[in-house]
Design a protein around this nucleic acid. Structure first.
Lengths: 339, 339
DNA sequence: CTGAAAGCGCTAACAT
DNA sequence: ATGTTAGCGCTTTCAG
């Protein structure tokens, strides 16, 4: 119906040059010393007819798309979904829109996705990187594209990132189990060299070894399909009946673990005490409620977007990279009651 | 580093016209009867130097952005997060990317978001519409933009939509409670005229009235803030101690309800039987596990994207609109055991 | 203070 | 079968 109008249409209607309109619309009226009345007229007219600049043309010309690419492990994972929600809000507040994708921790998929984001000319990248993606990230940075990693980082790449103090909180949670009297503690995690998982593992080891306890570790292949996580956990728990506590390295692992525990009819914490990473409804509502390490989701999102916006608005691209490490809290609940 | 190359660069390198390149790259070689060898040469060279057409320029020229706008109520809600994940996958498979946003069921916010999506020239819209958005949706359709609604629809707007049989599954779940011997059944829902909520309410009413039971209904203001849901539920349950069963109208309501039930120390199902909409981990893992209405998430996503892609590829824009209504299943569990 | 004009990279009608 | 060229709508330099 109503034909999309362009800057020329409105220039004609107002009998002035489109340059002037452009200047006014881009806040350069002052700088270009355009009369206040003209500015007012133009603004009023533009508002009246509901003119919206074509952002595609604008992007083509300026090279900025005002789009941020967000790559998470899996948007349906509550941790990433919550982060995405918060990042979305902040981004929109600042005039950026988000395009997102789930990497499934798959390096190839992630590479393709990065190519696609580049094609789409996203202005900045927020990535929870899978392993093996170092080269691609480095290449982004080399080309001057702002990148912020979160949840984990790449030790061999000098980038900004924000994450939590994985070693400490894992160490701390393990100590909690020890303090509660547990001795046969297993750490169940994904088989991966991702920094966050590795630090969590180290934190666990440190805490048990320090107490003269032999670490028991079960590493499961990452898979989006729950059955392929539940299966191995079941097997593991059945083979290790002497365990008195389990520490789950991620929320997904924890949820799957609870399913297994229910299926096996184990009583928590009598048969098995439990601690899990990430605090969310499932853990709060379980009976007994599950002791969990709560990540400061809002703070993470805040920091990620702040760092990225800084880089986006940076006059020089040569600022120092920032590593932000945030504190977590251990929410102690019934699942790790004193033995 | 490596300067972004354009179609002209490669035309020059190969000493042919950019038109030819464009034709070849867009699969019009046959149609334009370009020699197979030339096609091969070009394709090979393009691959070699890693040339990627500038999609911005392409979009500006063609008017297609290959982007789909996805508007959900809240991306951090597990139902919407799961749907988003599935839609994302399908869209990427078909060469479309997703930009998404959370409406919070806020009409004004949604209007602004629609304006933004239009500015960004998204090719198609997938929307879980809030109330009062009829005019804006109508205007999208009038302008020839493909729109598919899901989860709910707008009775006064003739659009494609996919949703579940809310009336029936709600009726059915209520009957289940009645069959199990419950008589003082409350339906707790959000105060809203959204079709899915309304149908669920009607289904509940029908089922209880049919059995000579007085419907008890609690309607709570929609809010993103959990405390403002938990508060009213607490109050309601405390004032209505004679209840023997509660039916929660959405997953969020159900989760909040469980928190209240835990806080009040009520035993399920002895003190209160429970049924909730949407089946997810929290309900499966609760003790006792919660009887829930499972939506066919994958089917919903499949249908949504199929319908939208159809419209996107449609030769004519005058196809009939399609209303797709999918079946759910009632997963009966311990929370609604026979009284 | 304002306007003319070049050009971002691409597509497609039109020419050859 | 392949090349020429006119824009898509906008920003921005350069001239008044």
């Amino acid at each position: 119906m109503k034909k999309k109008l362009s800057i020329i249409d409105i220039a004609n209607s107002l009998n002035i040059s489109k340059t002037t309109i452009s200047f006014i619309l881009n806040g350069k009226a002052q700088e270009k010393r355009i009369s206040e009345e003209l500015v007012a007229t133009v603004l009023k007219y533009v508002e009246e007819v509901g003119y919206k600049p074509n952002s595609l043309a604008k992007s083509l010309r300026t090279g900025k798309s005002h789009t941020i690419g967000l790559m998470v492990e899996d948007i349906s994972n509550p941790f990433f979904a919550s982060i995405a929600r918060l990042i979305e809000d902040k981004a929109y507040e600042n005039g950026y829109k988000i395009i997102y994708c789930s990497t499934d921790n798959d390096t190839n998929k992630t590479q393709e996705l990065i190519v696609m984001f580049r094609e789409r000319h996203v202005d900045g990248y927020i990535i929870a990187p899978p392993e093996g993606i170092e080269e691609d990230i480095r290449s982004l940075i080399k080309d001057g594209l702002p990148v912020v990693l979160f949840d984990r980082h790449l030790p061999k790449v000098d980038t900004d990132f924000v994450e939590i103090d994985n070693f400490f909180c894992s160490y701390n949670a393990t100590r909690h189990l020890v303090d509660q009297g547990y001795r046969k503690i297993a750490f169940i995690t994904f088989l991966s060299s991702q920094t966050q998982l590795n630090s969590r593992l180290q934190g666990f080891k440190e805490a048990v070894l320090e107490n003269g306890i032999e670490p028991i570790i079960e590493e499961i292949l990452f898979n989006h399909n729950e059955d392929l996580i539940i299966g191995p956990i079941t097997e593991f728990l059945q083979k290790n009946k002497h365990l008195d506590a389990v520490f789950f390295g991620t929320n997904h692992m924890g949820t799957c673990g609870l399913k297994v525990i229910n299926a096996l009819g184990l009583k928590v914490p009598r048969d098995l005490a439990i601690v899990s990473f990430d605090d969310y409804d499932v853990f709060k509502l379980y009976s007994p409620p599950v002791t969990a390490i709560a990540q400061p989701i809002e703070e993470i999102a805040d920091n990620v977007i702040t760092v990225l916006l800084n880089k986006l608005n940076a006059p020089s691209h040569h600022q120092k990279t920032r590593s932000i490490v945030l504190k977590t809290s251990l929410n102690v609940r019934g699942s790790s009651e004193k033995k």
